[in-house]
């Protein structure tokens, strides 16, 4: 049996349900779970807004250091840090499940996952690189961004139950207890940068370059979308899943808030995908969910008297310079 899951807080339930619906349509035999970094008992969701999918709240999977993680991490860091803990939970509590696939909530699955299931017969772990060919302009995002944040995109990772998988998940969990931060100068970028090591540390890892996987703004320079009989193709092979990373319904004319290379003007081939996505998000009550605050995230501390602090620090900074 195969289980696919995503992770989000209540504010992203429109995305998660869009993913769930697309997955069910093409792969009815794959079980789908929404890992929820939030508390359903702390909000009163309107009756028609309760997702018809399995939801597994984070407090139900007993993460050892969870309270500490909540204190130290922001919403992005926290939502990514719990990923290996969900894998671990499914591996330990769902003996009937062999393959586990993680998708970011802002992904749509367009086709059967047969190719992936086949890969998992041979390999234990499948990851997708952000890019598999050079970027020759100087726009964002560029090669140096991927060097800073990770070669593989962690909006997707698939594993088969096995020795290497268990070793990898255990190692990843250990790393993310404290080092799931965004701190580029110290080599850290959430859960993702760590995965650079996976093909080096573990056996049976497939780095999947198939262009129909994890298509997103970062690899549009090497991927062309076409349509035939209502089906999407990427570089002439079937599109399996598209990742709408950084797309926001409040700015529907922007491909992604993280980049400046592609627009709907210079990339008319991607327009139908995004138009459909925008429709799905609003059908799935994006506006309703997006305003609900995550239970686990504390409001950021506001530092006061910044100027006074600076003046007081100045003599000591000068002293350090002098010696």
């Amino acid at each position: 049996m195969t289980l696919a899951f995503t992770i989000c807080s209540i504010n992203y339930l429109a995305q998660a349900q869009t993913l769930g619906q697309s997955l069910k349509e093409q792969n009815p035999d794959v079980e789908f779970v929404i890992g929820l970094v939030d508390r359903l008992d702390k909000v009163q969701l309107e009756a028609d807004k309760i997702p018809p999918f399995q939801m597994l709240e984070i407090d139900k999977i007993n993460i050892e250091n969870f309270e500490e993680m909540c204190l130290n991490y922001n919403i992005t860091e926290l939502n990514t840090a719990v990923k290996p803990f969900f894998f671990d939970y499914f591996l330990k509590n769902r003996a009937d499940i062999t393959n586990i696939i993680y998708f970011d909530p802002d992904i749509i699955v367009y086709d059967k996952l047969d190719k992936l299931q086949n890969s998992l017969l041979t390999y234990e772990i499948v990851v997708t690189p952000h890019i598999s060919s050079p970027i020759n302009d100087r726009l964002d995002t560029n090669e140096t961004d991927h060097l800073n944040t990770g070669l593989y995109n962690l909006g997707f990772i698939a594993v088969r139950r096995g020795e290497e998988t268990i070793k990898m998940i255990d190692w990843w969990k250990e790393k993310l207890k404290k080092d799931c931060r965004i701190d580029l100068c110290n080599g850290l970028f959430v859960d993702q940068h760590w995965i650079n090591f996976v093909p080096l540390f573990y056996k049976n890892v497939l780095v999947e370059k198939y262009p129909g996987y994890n298509v997103a703004y970062w690899n549009l320079h090497e991927r062309k979308v076409t349509q035939e009989n209502g089906k999407f193709f990427i570089n002439n092979v079937p599109l399996i899943f598209f990742h709408f990373s950084g797309y926001e319904l409040k700015k529907p004319e922007e491909v992604s808030k993280y980049q400046n290379r592609s627009s709907f003007e210079n990339r008319p081939d991607i327009v139908p995908l995004f138009r459909y996505y925008a429709q799905k998000l609003s059908d799935n009550f994006n506006e309703y969910y997006i305003q609900i605050k995550c239970f686990y995230i504390k409001p950021p501390k506001i530092k006061r008297y910044k100027r006074v602090r600076k003046v007081l620090q100045l003599p000591f900074k000068k002293l350090i310079e002098l010696i």
Binding site: K175, D179, C185, N186, G187, L188, H193, W194, F197, L200
Partner: peptide, 9 residues
């Protein structure tokens, strides 16, 4: 390991 995330694999 962090050192090699910065410095290269």
């Amino acid at each position: 390991e962090k050192n090699f995330l910065n410095a290269g694999l």
